[in-house]
């Protein structure tokens, strides 16, 4: 049987310069959102292990809400819904960063909580028995160990969030997928272009994987 359609490598390569402008947007939304998400994660993650129910509760609610709803709904809510509430529009970049931040923040809270709780009780007891305050015990003994254990799941979340930004093409932010869609609209080369788009995501996530593996290797010395 004849092959009726050929993968057109020339078309694929021609699309590259049109897709590249999407990469900075993808990176900006991912890493901007993740940076804020990391701060949110630390705050809510630590709140979740507080002995006080009053502190614990808001964190529980936060995690359940933002982990339990789709990120696509979250970004649509922020981009289309919130402006109705605020009375002023939110630009697509801000909405994208905010969506990654609140969404990854919920997952990172769990990573932080799990990391801190995984440290043996004896570490805290030894610290306190030496006269360190609870804050010092956390800062010098618990957190450095917990953070090392958090690196692999944090990397995992980073990769998930990078891929999640592809959904933000729906609000028109000019990230990778959006650039691809615009280009396809004039060339009708969907197969080649989405293939290149996928390769670009892979290049980004794979670089992050390699970086994390290096970090882990270095961080785990002496564990």
């Amino acid at each position: 049987m004849e092959v009726t359609f050929q993968f057109d490598w020339a078309a694929a390569f021609r699309s590259i310069p049109h897709l590249l402008p999407g990469i900075p947007w993808t990176l900006l939304i991912s890493f901007g959102g993740l940076a804020i998400g990391f701060i949110i994660g630390i705050v809510f993650g630590l709140m979740r292990i507080s002995p006080s129910r009053l502190i614990r509760w808001p964190a529980v609610v936060y995690v359940e809400v933002f982990r339990g709803t789709p990120i696509l709904v979250q970004v649509l809510f922020i981009f289309y819904g919130l402006p109705q509430l605020l009375g002023s529009p939110i630009n697509a970049l801000t909405a994208g960063i905010a969506a990654i931040a609140v969404n990854s923040g919920a997952y990172i809270s769990e990573v932080v909580r799990g990391g801190v709780q995984s440290i043996e009780r004896g570490q805290r007891e030894a610290s306190l028995s030496l006269g360190l305050s609870r804050t010092q015990a956390f800062r010098y003994v618990i957190w450095p160990q917990a953070f090392r254990r958090m690196i692999p799941p944090l990397g995992n979340q980073g990769i998930i969030s990078i891929k999640d930004t592809s959904l933000f093409s729906v609000i028109g932010v000019g990230e990778l997928v959006r650039q691809g869609q615009i280009y396809i609209a004039t060339t009708f080369t969907a197969l080649e272009v989405y293939f290149m788009v996928a390769l670009m995501y892979l290049a980004i996530t794979w670089s992050l994987s390699l970086l994390l593996r290096q970090l882990e290797k270095r961080g785990l010395v002496g564990q």
Partner: peptide, 12 residues
Amino acid sequence: GMVFQQFNLFPH
């Protein structure tokens, strides 16, 4: 001062 059964040295 206290010495524990499991040593509890700081591994990092």
